[in-house]
Design a protein around this nucleic acid. Sequence first.
DNA 1: CCTACATCCTCCAGTGACTAGAGGATCAAG
DNA 2: CTTGATCCTCTAGTCACTGGAGGATGTAGG
Lengths: 146, 146
Amino acid sequence: MSTTPAAQPPAPRHAGGMAIGALSRRTAVKVPTIRYYEEIGLLPTPPRGGNGRRLYGEAAVDRLGFIRRARDLGFGIDDIRALLDMSDRPGQPCADIDRIARQHRDAVRDKIRQLASLEAALTAMVDQCGHGAVADCQILEALGRD
Amino acid sequence: MSTTPAAQPPAPRHAGGMAIGALSRRTAVKVPTIRYYEEIGLLPTPPRGGNGRRLYGEAAVDRLGFIRRARDLGFGIDDIRALLDMSDRPGQPCADIDRIARQHRDAVRDKIRQLASLEAALTAMVDQCGHGAVADCQILEALGRD
DNA sequence: CCTACATCCTCCAGTGACTAGAGGATCAAG
DNA sequence: CTTGATCCTCTAGTCACTGGAGGATGTAGG
C-alpha cells in the first residue's frame, strides 16, 4: 500500500523472523508438533522465506507458549481453540472463559476421585499378595472374581 | 477320535455355546470390543458354527470378565496380556504379578499427584476470574504469562 | 571450492483402545 | 412371509501427537 518502495531497511538480522527450530527451542514445543498445530488451525500459516521455510515472529512465540501452558494444564485442543478465539475478542465478557476453566477443573476433580478409589483397590490387592505361587495369587483372584 | 459317531446327544440347548451378543451381555463388553480383543490376541479365536458365527463357552466369560475388571482398574493391554500369560502358569512364583500391580499403583499415585497440583492451579485461576471483560481475564493472563 | 552435518520440507504411517459405519448374510418370532 | 435383531468382514475415524522416508537447502570448517 505504501508508495515508498525503497525506504525499507535492508533486512536486519531478525527481520525475517526465526525458523521453526528456533521457535521450537524458545517454546519447548517439538517441531512436528508445531507443524501439526498449524495443520489443525491452532497456529496461523506463517509466511515463508524464499527457500520455502516457515518464518515466525514474537507473536508466534506468545501464541504457542499460551497453547503449551494450556496443554500442560490438561486443556483439550478444542478448549484451547475456544480460549484463543475469545482472547482475540477482548471486549466480550469473560463468562465463557470462566465456564471452560470451571468445567475443566471439575473434570479434573472427577478424575482424581476415580483414581483415588482405583488406588485404594490396587493397594488392597498389593497388600494381600502372599508372594507365593501364581496359583494362590490374591491379585489374580481379585481380578477373576465376578 | 471317538469311534461312535452316532452316540452324541442332538446338540443340547447350550452345547454349541453362546453367540457374541450373549457374551457381550454377560460381561458388559461391547461386541466390537470383543472382536477387537480377539484381533489383538487377548482372546483366543473361538470355534465357529456352520453359519460362520463365533461360539463361546464359560471359559470365554471368565477370561473376558478378567480383562474387563483389569481394564476398569486402568491396566493397559500389555499388562493384562502379561497377567493372563502368568495365570496360565500356576506353578510360577507370583512376584511378577505383584510387580505389575505395584507399578500400576505407583503410576496411579503419580497421576493423582499431577492432577492435584493441576486442580490447585485451575482453582486459583477460576477464583481469580473477575467476571469482567475478556481483556482483564485473569485466566487468560495466567495462561499468557511465561 | 568441497565436504560434512544440521535443518528444513512434504507425505505417510503408527500409537492406544477402541468406536462407528457400510454393505450384506442369516436367524428367530409373529 | 415379513420384519427386525443379530451376525459377518472391512474400512476409517477418534485424540494429540510422534516417527520415519526421502529429498532439498543452509552453515561451518578445511
